[in-house]
Simulated scan of single mutants.
Amino acid sequence: MQVFKAMLKVMRKRLPSAMIYIIVFVVISIIVTNASTKDNKFEVTKLDICVFDEDDTPESRALIDFIGKSNDIDEIENDRDTIIDSLYYKRVNYALIIKKGYAERLAAGDTADLFGSYHIDENYSVVYMGQLLNEYTTSVKAYLTMGRTLDEAISSAEEALSQNTEVDMLRVDKGGSSHFSVDFAGYFQYMPYILIAAVFTVVCQVLVTMNNKDIRYRTNCSCIAPSKYTFQMFMGSAVFVLAVWLLLIVIGAILNKEMYTGRAWYAVLNSFIFSVVVTAISVFISSFEPKENVLNLITQVLSIGMSFLCGIFIPMEVLSDRVLAVARFLPAYWYVRANNMIADIEPFNRSSVIQCLLIEAGFAVMLILLTLLVRKLKYSGSAIVTTAKKVAVN
């Protein structure tokens, strides 16, 4: 097991590079988990609003007082450039103009074109203020229709619109009794990216080093058969990947105490099979002896590419049919699809989940066979003899 031991020694030196990805992933997971466990209370967001009252009547001032109860009223100079600058630099969110004749038209029940405004674009503050003003004037008009005076209608409208209801934001996990919460599903959702990035950073670099021409020629001259050499390379890679996977699983168990119950077992099995696939991919790529800069490029393309195409970073329901059709040829697609069914993002079907797991395993088997074929063609004794003859002839 000389090759196996040598790989572990080299991997120890590369371990800090992988730990960066793992630590960042764990820290983000802890932050998200802690945030989700807090009681979620709904709070109305206050806007910074400036109001220019061209009507200057008790009715218009009553409107300003009403707006000020739920928002912050700021005073700025009534100059277009000043207003635009304030909006651009976010000193105010919305500039409201109460047009002249507001009180008269409101008393007559005319609620159209009572206001003007300045705003940068159609954002939340614009929609919110438009809805607030519409509710206020519509309520006043309704009370006027009921026969009340303008002052009484304004008071009644303010009282009705000032009613507050306590709202608690509740989260419902679709998994029901599956003990596979939304947060935990998200933890497994992003695990493939971390596995690919961390494993490729260490395993591929080590394997490329081990496949160095001088080292390979010396190994082929030894008593170690090429098949045993390849087997030990797989074993060394598998041990490292297994260690990374176990670390992530243990951390997941700490973050979610119900990890080993219900459908969570499927998620654990799903992540294990994908880790085997990642091992197979890393050994297969390293067989072509890419240079370090090329290897870094391959790592980024595979990790980020599969994350975007297969639904890791972007939900599958958002992706187009063409993108998903291409993603079917990538193992991460089947991982995410299984994870979605386990979390009930898609309807849970045990046979479909098992089918996804088997397809992932099929990718691993195919890559292992291709790796054996490539290594037999490139690193066999006959290949070295052929190379030596060519050198001798030259």
Rank of each mutant, 00 (worst) to 15 (best):
A62W: 03
R322A: 04
T138D: 07
V323R: 09
S181L: 03
K99Q: 08
F272E: 05
L132I: 10
Q131I: 10
D53Y: 11
I281F: 13
D79M: 07
D55F: 07
L248R: 08
T45R: 14
F115C: 07
K376Y: 05
Q300R: 13
F4Q: 02
S177L: 11
S162C: 03
D79H: 11
I304D: 00
A112D: 13
V202F: 02
N34P: 00
F274S: 01
L248Q: 08
S352Q: 14
I97H: 01
F240K: 05
R328A: 11
V24D: 03
E317K: 12
K41M: 05
Q189N: 15
S282Q: 05
T230Y: 00
L373I: 14
I98V: 09
T145Y: 11
S29M: 07
Q300C: 06
M316Q: 14
S117Q: 11
R216D: 04
N340M: 11
N270W: 06
A225D: 08
Q205T: 15
L242H: 04
K13F: 08
M129C: 06
W265K: 06
D214G: 04
Y266I: 08
V250P: 00
R91W: 06
D74G: 01
L47S: 06
N394G: 10
M19T: 08
Q232D: 10
I368M: 11
S29G: 09
P192S: 10
A108N: 09
I83E: 00
G381A: 10
R322G: 00
S352N: 12
S178R: 01
I98F: 01
A388G: 03
R375K: 13
N256C: 03
P347M: 13
R14Y: 14
E135I: 04
E152R: 05
W265V: 13
R322W: 07
K5I: 12
F52P: 01
K141S: 15
S17H: 06
E43G: 01
N340R: 09
F188A: 03
A364L: 05
F42D: 03
Y266V: 01
G147S: 13
K9F: 07
F42G: 05
V92Q: 01
G147P: 07
M169C: 04
N164L: 07
V244F: 06
I31C: 06
N340F: 05
F52D: 01
Y21F: 14
L87G: 01
F348K: 08
I251G: 02
F25D: 00
L247M: 13
R61D: 07
L324A: 09
I254S: 09
F363A: 06
L144M: 11
K38V: 11
V51I: 15
N40D: 10
E75K: 06
D173L: 05
S155L: 10
L246S: 13
P347W: 14
M169G: 00
D48C: 04
M7H: 03
E317D: 12
L195A: 03
I22D: 00
P16M: 10
F329Y: 15
T279A: 11
A6I: 12
A264C: 14
L247E: 05
S70Y: 09
L372A: 13
D55H: 13
G362I: 08
N220M: 15
T37R: 15
K291H: 11
V182F: 09
K228C: 02
T137I: 07
S17K: 11
T82P: 01
Y266W: 08
F184T: 03
I384S: 08
Y128C: 03
L242C: 11
G68W: 04
D55M: 12
I22W: 02
A243R: 09
